[in-house]
Design a protein around this nucleic acid. Structure first.
Ligand SMILES: NC(=O)c1ccc[n+]([C@@H]2O[C@H](COP(=O)([O-])OP(=O)(O)OC[C@H]3O[C@@H](n4cnc5c(N)ncnc54)[C@H](O)[C@@H]3O)[C@@H](O)[C@H]2O)c1
Ligand SMILES: NC(=O)c1ccc[n+]([C@@H]2O[C@H](COP(=O)([O-])OP(=O)(O)OC[C@H]3O[C@@H](n4cnc5c(N)ncnc54)[C@H](O)[C@@H]3O)[C@@H](O)[C@H]2O)c1
Lengths: 246, 246
DNA sequence: CGCGATTTGTGCACGCCTTCACAAGCGCCT
DNA sequence: AGGCGCTTGTGAAGGCGTGCACAAATCGCG
């Protein structure tokens, strides 16, 4: 059974190297599997088949198996995966067992919502510092945290062991904030401002642009509408056939 | 010159079909190009080379050219792309010239921020209705819109011509809300709740899960840390060499 | 009017990702 | 103890996306 004795780590006694280089696509799905696994654990399941987990995560079961196989062999043929073991493995790979410290810069409309969100705690993160340039905001308390001036960023990053920075300032300020974060030693940034950030190699940036998401949906709406309007009639559910244009 | 006379549409006199089926990857990048183009237009540029636009959008120039070539031939060799023309084309393809009506369901922490965000207007959308199940919230006004009870959703979707629904309720309520939206005729959903939604074929769902983004960043942090800690020493910038684990 | 500089549009090759299909492995039941 | 059914892990194939490299096209200038 290879004892649950993987314990907390890179003990590396198994077939897989201490840090397998997973395909990017796989990495992006692991969090989804993790969420589904937590739900299953809460529901009382001890084991889960690839089919079941795939359904819960909304993916193809073959894809899921291949993804998990990259982590090592944590399933049992004829049975499925041990839910708890798999949770531990994925959390370890994702580096979530450290409860990473996150800094949030720009406590405006969106920043407030993020700072007040308690859902991050259960997903492996602690927002430990809030920053803003506006003196009006500095000093205010949100969810037990006091907003500090952005000038204190560098010191805080070191003192609080911050590894991830979240930017929710207007786009005009985003690059400057990113530079500050990088200078302070942060090597991962989540950017909500609709702009491109340029950072040195070795720093990871992920961007979340809600308008882009809506625009992608808009494209598909547009496409669906133009298909129902066309003579082809390839679409099954076409009740509202409204002619387009001419 | 093929006259700017494409006018407002699927006149379809060109080489490209009225509705080219673009690769999904291309569609996801068009909004980024559009944003960059708007910035350029504002800065006074009339034309822009693929190299310049690619830099502004943060992508490879060859990729950009291939993406744009799918829309048709809107560039001029030796010159570049006409900024205004390209904006119009991309907006047409994305279906943004209609200023799509969006409904927001779940006016809580996050919903408030979204409802109060004025940035959507300039990107082609109008949030025209807010819904919540909590009677405490119903009746409140946010940014000129009154929060309505979720029971009015169906009527509103029809009356207001809503085509996109945004879900920012707790995950436990999300599937129900999605069902309501679909029943009301909405065929595109943007979901902020961390859960998988199941919807009938023909309905598009996009998901935004902030915790997942952080977890992906966390993985890379973890990987970077384990590399600097290893004897290999492949990394250049390793000042804070803190041993991992043991 | 022709030539060179510039930039687009694209053929091609390569690598990544997805999916199918199945052998290998495991537990349970008889 | 042995066989049977179930599930994992993976080889192979196909499709998609990326990026190079270059021919075709356009402009400006002499
Ligand atoms: N609110 C939303 O729902 C929403 C949706 C999509 C995108 N966004 C984007 O998220 C970002 C934030 O949006 P918002 O609505 O919260 O804007 P906001 O104006 O309400 O808040 C921005 C905050 O950033 C602070 N700030 C400005 N410059 C700063 C600096 N240099 N350092 C630190 N703080 C600084 C401001 O003082 C302000 O508190 C914007 O880029 C916006 O485009 C927001
Ligand atoms: N706040 C954030 O920064 C944040 C970050 C990431 C993810 N999320 C996710 O976004 C969603 C919303 O988060 P939040 O912080 O705004 O939560 P919230 O509890 O503050 O707000 C949820 C709102 O939805 C309403 N609601 C509940 N059931 C409903 C129903 N059936 N129909 C209509 N409305 C209903 C509630 O009355 C409440 O107003 C959650 O799923 C959360 O996990 C939020």
């Amino acid at each position: 059974m290879s004892q649950q004795r993987h314990g907390n780590t890179p003990g590396n006694a198994g077939a897989v190297p201490a840090f397998p280089d997973l395909p990017e696509a796989t990495i992006a799905r692991l969090p989804e599997y993790l969420r589904a696994l937590h739900n299953l654990a809460e529901a009382g399941s001890d084991t889960i088949s690839s089919e079941g987990l795939a359904a819960a995560a909304g993916v193809n079961s073959a894809k899921l198996r291949k993804d998990l196989s990259h982590l090592g062999s944590y399933g049992t043929r004829g049975v499925g995966y041990d839910v708890t073991l798999l949770i531990d493995q994925i959390e370890y790979i994702l580096g979530l067992d450290q409860r990473r410290a996150v800094a949030l810069v720009g406590v405006g409309n969106l920043g407030h919502a993020l700072a007040g969100y308690d859902g991050f705690a259960s997903r492996g993160f602690r927002i430990v510092a809030l920053f803003d340039a506006d003196l009006e905001q500095v000093g205010k308390a949100i969810n037990g945290l006091t907003v500090r001036h952005v000038g204190e960023l560098r010191r805080s990053v070191v003192e609080d062991g911050i590894t991830i920075g979240v930017i929710s300032t207007p786009p005009s300020a985003a690059q400057g904030v990113a530079d500050d974060l990088v200078a302070a030693g942060v090597t991962s940034i989540l950017n909500f401002a609709p702009c491109v950030l340029s950072v040195p190699a070795g720093v990871d940036v992920r961007k979340v642009d809600l308008a882009i998401e809506l625009q992608i949906l808009s494209f598909h709406e547009h496409r669906k509408a133009s298909l129902t309007a066309l003579p082809g009639g390839l679409v099954g559910e076409g009740e509202n056939q409204e002619a387009v244009g001419s």
